[in-house]
Nucleic acid binder design. Structure first.
Length: 268
DNA sequence: ACACTAACCTGCAAGC
DNA sequence: TGCTTGCAGGTTAGTG
């Protein structure tokens, strides 16, 4: 489900309820996620205070006094704050109970997400590329890294060791805005066009965050509200519909196991 | 180092 | 009304 804007929206939604709180209890009803929920996480975090919550790539990191929890939402995960006890719904796997009485509940039908505890660092965070909204990420950087690479540019920018947080939706949208065909080999794009692309990635992500993310099926922020960026999508999930720019029919092609929609006239 | 595939899992829509 | 097939917001492990 969530790409960077959805994870960021989730972070902003839940943070006010969690900062400074102590974890009174944790209930785990399903440990079998992308990786098994870390053994012993219950005893490790019970009674610990939440000092900070941050996002790195599509991960949320809960910093406690004695270590940190790394939470990923996978394809279908979501977090939601409950201000009063609620019924357990199907696929509600984990719940944190806070001293305030509020609860944080994790819901994930496909179970591609993860909940990992570590007292040191998390290996998942090694080898990640720059944050797309950081200064270090620009056209120069993309151009330099892309030299002699044959992979399709869409797969290139979705590669988390190149840049993090860009998933299928925002890769597709950014390439459309930049007029670049998603299947063009990464090494055959000019520095100038990479500058366009890097800028459009930033613009698209920021705008999506402002709209609360993209809700396709089941995404909701920490308060249960959907995101409204779907209304502003140019190409994603619009195969066969008219291009918003030239009105010709949009084309679909699979690139690196992911469906990719683009305009054959506007994207070269 | 790079490129590509299968795999993890459930729900839903389309086709027969 | 079923049953089967394919696809979905992500990421890693394995292969060549």
């Amino acid at each position: 489900m969530p790409e960077l804007p959805e994870v960021e929206t989730t972070l902003r939604g839940i943070r006010p309820f969690l900062l400074g709180e102590t974890i009174a209890d944790i209930t785990i009803r399903q440990r079998s996620l992308r990786w098994p929920v870390t053994k012993g996480i219950e005893t490790s975090i019970r009674g610990s205070a939440i000092k900070e919550i941050s996002r790195r790539a599509k991960y949320l990191q809960f910093h406690l006094d004695n270590g940190s929890m790394l939470v990923h939402l996978g394809m279908s995960g979501s977090l939601r704050v409950l201000t009063q006890p609620g019924f357990w719904k199907k696929h509600d796997h984990i719940e944190l109970k806070l001293n305030s009485g509020n609860m944080l509940r994790y819901h994930d039908p496909r179970r591609f997400g993860s909940w990992l505890w570590s007292q040191g660092g998390h290996w998942q965070l090694k080898k990640l590329g720059p944050e797309p909204l950081s200064e270090g990420f620009d056209g120069e950087y993309l151009y330099r890294l892309s030299k002699r690479r044959q992979v399709a540019v869409k797969a290139f920018i979705m590669n988390s060791s190149v840049v993090v947080g860009v998933g299928n939706i925002y890769a597709s949208e950014s390439l459309f805005l930049s007029g670049i065909r998603p299947d063009r080999p990464a090494g055959r794009i000019s520095k100038k066009r990479y500058s366009m692309l890097a800028n459009n990635i930033k613009i698209t992500l920021k705008r999506a965050i402002d709209r609360g993310g993209t809700t396709l099926r089941d995404y909701s922020n920490g308060n249960g509200d959907p995101g409204y960026f779907k209304q502003e999508l140019f190409v994603y999930a619009r195969n066969g519909l008219p291009c918003m720019n030239c009105r010709s029919r949009l084309t679909e092609k699979r690139i690196g196991q992911r469906s990719s929609v683009f305009c054959m006239r506007c994207q070269v």
